[in-house]
Nucleic acid binder design. Structure first.
Lengths: 160, 160
DNA sequence: TGTGAAAAGATTAGCAG
DNA sequence: CTGCTAATCTTTTCACA
């Protein structure tokens, strides 16, 4: 489905991306539309699937997960059964937050969070159950930028 | 500050991580505490900084950013001026969502979203303004897991 | 669209254990 | 202190101009 929005919709999305706890009235005021117009726009954006979900982000340190690690994985078994097994393993490990199949010479990229090095070691042992060929880990030393806000400039604008 | 929570707090956090739009009443009911008890717990968790923010996640495809790319960066200039310049560049590019300084042989890992290959090329040109030594990009072919929900099992539990 | 009213929810205060 | 109940205030939702 082709999505087209106008300037107001973009402004609404930008605000909601930054803060999901804004009330409809606050958003409406900032964007310069009436409360109910704003509410209807938000409904439409949700129905259209532009808005995926509203989530609460927790502080990694405060939940005792200060270490973030990226694990590059290569396999020599390029078959469906292996892929299915791999999917099951990563799905079952809650420390694994993201898993991507990648282009280029590494096959998969995993982002995970752990408490400390022993925690990483446990994670590692858990992961290699999936029968991985080559694993290389890199730890996050410092987070210089981290946002969930997508740029909206590439979203086609409705010309009125 | 040391954070200690009990079973109820964990349950609240788990629910809010999954869905920030739940009402206090809904959370209270699921957790099995009263509405206002639940509200006060939520306040405390926010004050304690366990809850960082509530955000709205948009659908990447619907905002015309279907391509995700990880850019590994190495530099030969390990000085503060270069680091500051690098920080400014990535901060100023909205397609760049995450930037980490890493352990190991790569220096920085960048996660970015773009519309298509020409979009990636524009991003690349933007990034190399920071005077990078070695850049290697890998594209996300398939997202197999993607969550913002942190596991809560490592959060110290208050023994009552 | 926007207005406004009814329903649902959030927040505060007072009280009990 | 923590939690419950009730009163009040805010926000959401929806009919209608």
């Amino acid at each position: 489905m082709k999505i087209k929005v106008d300037r107001q919709d973009k402004a609404i999305l930008a605000l909601l991306q930054a803060d999901a706890s804004l009330s409809v009235a606050e958003v409406a005021e900032k964007v310069g539309v009436s409360k109910s117009a704003c509410w209807r726009r938000m409904q439409k954006l949700e129905e259209a699937g532009v808005i995926r979900e509203r989530v609460t982000l927790l502080n990694q340190d405060k939940v005792n997960l200060p270490l973030t690690v990226y694990v590059s994985v290569r396999t020599n078994q390029h078959n469906d059964r292996w892929a299915e097994r791999f999917r099951e393993v990563v799905e079952g490990v809650p420390e694994v937050l993201e898993v991507y199949r990648m282009s280029g010479d590494l096959d998969y990229l995993i982002k995970a969070v752990v408490t400390d090095m022993p925690g990483y070691d446990r994670l590692y042992k858990e992961l290699i159950k999936a029968d991985l060929f080559d694993v290389s880990s890199s730890f996050v030393m410092e987070s210089m930028k981290q946002t969930t806000q997508l740029p909206l400039r590439y979203l086609q604008e409705k010309t009125q």
